[in-house]
């Protein structure tokens, strides 16, 4: 595959957050939110990132955008290592990479009108002013299915779904190439979720966007993504094409995760094999040795406790990190 097909490449990304304690704020431990993961996102595709809370999926999204000073590893955007870029170059990069937030209530400034919120990136990056600004603003409103005359309203005057549209329009305002969607639909009602998912898919096609779609809902992620990456406790468990995710999951965690999601059809669901995991996800401060999943894994053998499995290519754009595969 030609390397210019790849928009984002992440290599051995490590992000540890220190836990500080005492009067002198000394570091007592690290939250190992992301502990050495690698993946890439091709231009124009959607990569889904799933996992349970504390698996590091949100942190990964933020690191890719350069919002955190990463502990280790590299993040390439169109071949440039964004961690090495500073000053003006960084601002230009920011313009190309935007973020859609999970909570459409908290992520909009309650004291700014919808128009000001959506227009802010344009002002920050000095994309447009005057009439051009107003025209583009109106265009953004229509693009996400809102009426331009709503621009003088405040966020609290919109419903949850409309607010998320505002959040999406804000991300689109500076015509980015790449958008990280951080749980963009999980705070919304079922019927509104579908609206927003379809909007995101439409926009991707029309504007040629590339998404990193972070979510915990496996059905949604599989639906919108071309490929799905499954994370567990700061590690990559499996990356596979979405079409293959349901039919051929290889990692025991992916299998358990899939089986834990009931299918909204009683007849089909009854025929599925159920794998019940025991216990909770361990704390990312003190992850288990070896494969992080081994204490909950039904297939674990001795080597799983001692040696960390590598993410291996098993063919057909399918990677898996498990000793037993």
């Amino acid at each position: 595959m030609a390397s210019d097909d790849i928009l984002i490449r992440v290599e051995d990304l490590v992000m540890h957050f220190p836990i500080l304690a005492g009067v002198l704020r000394r570091k007592v431990a690290d939250v190992k939110a992301v502990d050495g993961i690698s993946f890439y996102v091709k231009r124009g595709e959607t990569l889904g990132l799933v996992g349970e809370s504390g698996c590091g999926k949100t942190t990964t999204g933020r690191c890719v955008l350069g919002l955190y000073d990463i502990t280790g590893g590299k993040v390439f955007f169109e071949g440039t290592d964004i961690t090495k870029v500073t000053g003006k170059g960084r601002r230009a990069l920011r313009r190309n990479m935007q973020l859609v937030f999970q909570d459409p209530y908290a992520s909009l400034d309650p004291r700014m009108t919808a128009g000001d919120i959506i227009g802010e990136p344009m002002l920050v990056h000095q994309v447009a002013a005057g009439n051009a600004y107003r025209e583009q603003l109106a265009e953004l409103f229509t693009m996400v299915g809102l009426e331009p005359r709503m621009s003088i309203r405040y966020p609290h005057e919109f419903s949850g779904g409309q607010r998320q549209r505002i959040g999406i329009a804000r991300a689109l305002a500076v015509r980015p190439k790449f958008i990280v969607c951080d749980e963009p639909v999980s705070a919304l009602d079922v019927s509104i979720q579908a609206q927003v998912i379809m909007l995101l898919m439409k926009l991707r096609q029309e504007l040629g966007l590339t998404y990193l779609f972070v979510a915990h809902d496996l059905s949604v992620v599989r639906f919108i993504s071309d490929r799905v990456a499954v994370m567990y406790l700061g590690k990559m468990a499996e990356i596979t094409r979405s079409d293959e995710l349901y039919d051929n999951p290889l990692h025991p965690y992916t299998q358990a995760l899939l089986s834990a999601v009931p299918i909204p059809d009683p007849v089909v669901d009854r025929q599925r094999k159920r794998i019940l995991l025991y216990g909770d996800v361990p704390s990312p401060v003190n992850p288990p040795s070896g494969c992080h999943f081994n204490p909950r894994c039904r297939m674990a053998i001795d080597i799983c406790k001692e040696q960390e499995p590598e993410l291996r290519d098993v063919g057909g754009e399918h990677w898996v990190a498990c000793h037993r595969v």
Binding site: R91, A106, D109
Partner: peptide, 14 residues
């Protein structure tokens, strides 16, 4: 602590 401050930062606001 509000998310919209994060959002402004993500947009690239100084």
């Amino acid at each position: 602590e509000n998310m919209y401050v994060d959002a402004a930062r993500a947009v690239g606001a100084p």
